[in-house]
Amino acid sequence: MLGRLRPSRLVFFAAIAAYVFIVLGILLTVILNSLSKGWFSGLLPPYLTTEWYKYAATDHDIPNLLAVTFTVVLADVLIALLIAFPAAYVLARQEFRGKGLFLSLLLLPMIVPPMTYGIPLAMLCYKFHLAAKVVGVVIVNLVPIVPFMVLVLMPFIEQVGTNLESAAKMLGASRWTIFRKVLVPLTVPGILTAGILSLVKAISMFELTYLVAGGKSQTIVVALYADAYAAGARPAQAVDALAVIYFLIAMLCLMISLRFVSPTQMVFKLK
């Protein structure tokens, strides 16, 4: 059946090809433009140069941008794990009054758009002097990540049977020992998956960071937006150079993550 040329097959692959053409076109244009000089028309740029990267490096404090981006992303993933893992454990294992309500409240930040709660949240950050600081950026970005992590972790914890925990308990292990020596080692795949998926998500999160960050607490994606927004303030090629730096980081994270998870896991899934 695979070899037969059905119209549905043709339509499917034509559409996929068109999609890939656009995605690759966008990426290659950005990469080539960042390396080009005098590319005003034609298929390819007449000269290639690396000067826009030097320009971007002196114009922006690239080391600082990278440091902030990685600090924010890693801090968010780690803090979110510390909050989400115990919660996912309780939600996966126990019935308690108000569980349904708690779960739906926990899902709300994923359904309500970032702009809606982001504006009052940013206002509070200004009030408590957290705005324009890396700490503030880390805090606001936790909001969409924690619920996402709980959702990813829950099925992994459900998969671990309760037998091992009961056995450990009978042998006199304390709750903390069971948690540390039984549960956590058995859920390493889940922790890894949740961590990686959140990392990929966190790298591209824009709105909340944009509302709270300032000068020295900008992440790379916010700096890129600011550059693209102020079109004309900097040469377009220099903006593209920054875009390529961001692209390389995001792709690196994506490549690493695809070794552990499949693309269908990267979108939010709910039963």
């Binding site: 028309s41 693209a228 593209d240 692209f247 994506l254």
Partner: peptide
């Protein structure tokens, strides 16, 4: 290929579209 635009986020996709789909783009 489908996951790339999601990973890159809106900002990069928009920025890239400006050149790729612009009057002199490919």
């Amino acid at each position: 290929f489908l996951i790339i635009p999601i990973t890159l986020g809106t900002v990069l996709v928009s920025e890239g579209m400006l050149s790729f789909m612009g009057p002199k783009g490919w």
